[in-house]
């Protein structure tokens, strides 16, 4: 019986805390209201919790130091400048690479066309002249 009473108190206390932050259903609301009506201690506890919550809300009136906004904007501005600098560098690199890539592609096309004109076939052997070159002769090539 005492155990049942304690269980009931725990449930009512749980309802009490929930009542501040959650919506109780109809049955729970009725039960809670009845418990409040019957218990002075429960009403006092409810008022204590309300007072504590109010004290917590009132305890904080914080603000950052003056010119906080300016400091944030200054950081963002310096980040943007850094980002723009990096972006500019990569764009320059890309532009240079593009030129090299275009020139390289043009040379390849010219070589292919010359090869096609001088020979009848367009095989990789013909393109890279490997049909007439032995492996031993590769080492003698000026490339190395």
């Amino acid at each position: 019986m005492i155990q049942e009473g304690k269980e009931m108190d725990k449930k009512i206390l749980k309802l009490l805390y929930r009542s501040f932050d959650d919506e109780l259903n109809e049955t729970e609301t009725q039960r809670f209201k009845e418990a409040l009506r019957q218990s002075d201690e429960l009403r006092r506890e409810k008022d204590r919790i309300l007072a504590q919550r109010h004290a917590i809300a009132e305890s904080q009136k914080p603000s950052f130091k003056p010119f906080f906004t300016e400091r944030v904007m200054s950081r963002i501005a310096s980040l943007s400048a850094k980002k723009n600098g990096l972006e500019a560098f990569y764009e320059t690199l890309l532009a240079i690479f593009r030129r090299f890539a275009l020139v390289g592609a043009a040379i390849l096309i010219i070589l292919l066309l010359a090869n096609l004109r001088s020979g009848d076939a367009l095989s990789t052997d013909e393109i890279f002249y490997t049909s007439d070159v032995a492996i031993e002769e590769i080492a003698d090539l000026p490339l190395f």
């Binding site: 008022d47 204590r48 309300l50 007072a51 504590q52 109010h54 004290a55 917590i56």
Partner: peptide, 21 residues
């Protein structure tokens, strides 16, 4: 928080015997 604040806040509350809510 109630346990932490009890020595000052709740005692004060009980002395007053009314809600601050």
């Amino acid at each position: 928080l109630k346990e932490i604040l009890k020595p000052l806040y709740w005692d004060k509350y009980d002395t007053r015997g009314e809600g601050n809510g």
